[in-house]
Design a binder for these strands. Structure first.
Lengths: 257, 257
DNA sequence: GCATCATTGATACAGTCGTATCAAGCAACC
DNA sequence: GGTTGCTTGATACGACTGTATCAATGATGC
């Protein structure tokens, strides 16, 4: 409901332009606006005493950059209610910013989704590295292997949410080339890592099992653990069941000590 | 744009009720409408000669029931552009029916999605059975096993589309209990089937491999082949690569003949 | 001729969506 | 003081969504 009888400029009282779209004008010119601003700034300066220790980038440090903050809202919504619930307005509200801010920092919804996926990959890798660094015995190759594969299972709320967001994005990427490119470009070959670990463990253990192909074992392990994780999300399997299956296969592949 | 000056009843010319919503009235009463209908029916009867051989359920037989026809439209859209593109109007257009027909047969959009998923499961099982029946040598247990697992790979356009629809529904089911229930209820335990085949093949072959657990092998095989199929959809793997991996594991599990 | 049934046609409504537009806020430079 | 640039607030627009409403269609039975 636009004000039907507009008053004049707040500073000089001159009549205002009657823009029918966008924010209603309050000043007659840029100069009057600047004048009003300087008045406010002066009042603040006198009231707030000396400038004191002003934190210059306060909001930046208390939760990452603005983009990061908004991207996290996307993940949160996608994990809780699915990507189709992540509208611009919902994301803005969840991030505690206005719709305009989301528009400004990401340009379009598509830009937002792509950027959020990009940041998600980085975030997940950061967290994975942190968990790997916290391993009890980094020389225990079987434990390392288990930890790598465990990154794809909903073992805690963090990974559970990450997996939900991941599959939501995966499905969308099937019909969105830009998202698919982020997936294919960012995802490093975990299979290579797993195959290397298997090879190392075989060399360290008794000997290379006859006829065992680390690459093929890694391929099925990685894709299998992803599928098993999805089943857990779905409620089709229990985490304990998956653990048992995984232990069986690790026992099978790795040489007994 | 509603007609501003309504004319009278088509039959008796009496003034019409001025309903502001819904379809505009043309007759003043139900009786006048019936009268008009009988006139048309009489004209048709005289023009079309004897009643001839009227196909009573003609539209039913030329492509399944109405519900089936609409559900197929849902699958088509979901496979090509994702489930979020499957609006009521899009589905109706793709099925060649009116929006109202979709509303009538499924009640709500949610009802449509649930029913379409239900019918999809039936359809996929039908097709899988048909392909299994066409196997060259049904006694070749390894071939049977490969065919069962192959149902989850995008080996042709049909299965490719089925897989795309499947994952789209899977993701949505994570936030939709009704869909999740359809998934959990309809999906029969393929793992059991695979485990049974492995056991049979072991018994028929040389002997049961030492320390081999058919259940655990089946678990990783089924979830793994699903994940590999998703990678193929994504373009992260080639079908040939998946075939090689699968052959390796079948060789590993099944006793050499 | 009339009532009734399941089905379909023709709208209408209230809301949400992504996006666009214009102006204010704030700070720096001239 | 005036201008410029980046950021944000306050709307507005048009398209689309799911759903609801009322009537017509075609057929059957009384």
């Amino acid at each position: 409901m636009r004000d039907e009888n507009p008053v004049g400029c707040r500073v000089c009282g001159a009549p205002l332009a009657t823009a029918v779209r966008g924010r209603p004008p309050v000043y007659c010119s840029r100069g009057c606006q600047a004048k009003a601003y300087r008045r406010r700034a002066g009042a603040r300066g006198r009231a707030a005493a000396p400038p004191a220790a002003t934190e210059p980038t306060a909001p930046r440090t208390e939760g990452g950059s603005r983009r990061q903050q908004i991207a996290e809202a996307v993940w949160r919504i996608a994990a809780e209610r699915g990507l189709e619930a992540a509208s611009m307005r919902e994301v803005a509200a969840a991030a505690g910013v206005s719709l305009r801010v989301v528009q400004y920092h990401f340009g379009s919804k598509h830009g937002l989704l792509v950027a959020a996926l990009h940041l998600l990959h980085e975030e997940n890798e950061r967290r994975a590295r942190a968990r790997m660094a916290r391993l009890a015995d980094p020389a225990d190759l079987r434990a390392v292997l288990g930890a790598v594969l465990g990154e794809f299972l909903p073992l805690d709320e963090q990974r559970r949410r990450a997996l939900r967001v991941f599959v939501a994005y995966y499905v969308r990427s099937l019909n969105d080339p830009a998202l698919a490119e982020v997936f294919l470009h960012d995802a490093q070959p975990v299979e290579r890592l797993v195959a290397g670990l298997i090879r190392q463990a075989c060399a360290a253990g008794g000997g290379p099992a006859p006829g065992l192909d680390p690459e093929r074992e890694a391929d099925l392990l990685v894709s299998g653990v992803t599928g098993l994780g999805m089943d857990v999300l779905h409620g089709r399997r229990t985490l304990a069941d998956v653990r048992t299956t995984l232990d069986y296969h690790l026992d099978r592949i790795l040489p007994a000590r």
